[in-house]
Amino acid sequence: MLIEEGRIKAAFDSGVFVLKLCGDVRLTLCATLDTQAQRLAETPGLRAVLIDLREATNVDSTALGFLAKVAMAVKGRLEQPPTIIVDNDDVRKMLDVMGFARFFTLMEAPLQQAT
Results as ranks from 00 to 15, higher is better:
residue 72 M to S: 11
residue 111 L to P: 09
residue 68 A to R: 09
residue 37 A to G: 05
residue 91 V to K: 06
residue 62 T to I: 06
residue 6 G to E: 08
residue 112 Q to E: 10
residue 11 A to D: 15
residue 61 S to Q: 07
residue 61 S to W: 04
residue 10 A to G: 03
residue 43 T to P: 00
residue 62 T to Q: 05
residue 88 N to I: 04
residue 25 V to F: 08
residue 88 N to C: 13
residue 115 T to K: 13
residue 7 R to W: 05
residue 51 I to N: 06
residue 71 A to Y: 03
residue 95 L to G: 04
residue 40 L to M: 06
residue 103 F to C: 07
residue 56 A to W: 06
residue 91 V to T: 06
residue 98 M to C: 07
residue 44 P to I: 00
residue 8 I to H: 09
residue 111 L to K: 14
residue 67 L to A: 05
residue 94 M to E: 11
residue 103 F to V: 12
residue 19 L to W: 10
residue 88 N to F: 06
residue 98 M to S: 12
residue 113 Q to C: 03
residue 23 G to D: 08
residue 12 F to S: 09
residue 58 N to G: 00
residue 51 I to M: 14
residue 25 V to T: 07
residue 107 M to P: 03
residue 91 V to D: 09
residue 105 T to P: 02
residue 68 A to E: 05
residue 32 T to W: 03
residue 86 V to K: 11
residue 67 L to M: 13
residue 110 P to H: 08
residue 29 L to Q: 13
residue 7 R to L: 12
residue 92 R to Q: 14
residue 114 A to W: 03
residue 21 L to R: 09
residue 20 K to C: 10
residue 11 A to Q: 13
residue 50 L to N: 08
residue 41 A to S: 13
residue 50 L to R: 15
residue 25 V to C: 10
residue 89 D to N: 12
residue 101 A to G: 02
residue 100 F to C: 00
residue 60 D to L: 07
residue 90 D to V: 10
residue 59 V to A: 02
residue 9 K to F: 12
residue 4 E to T: 14
residue 19 L to Q: 12
residue 37 A to K: 05
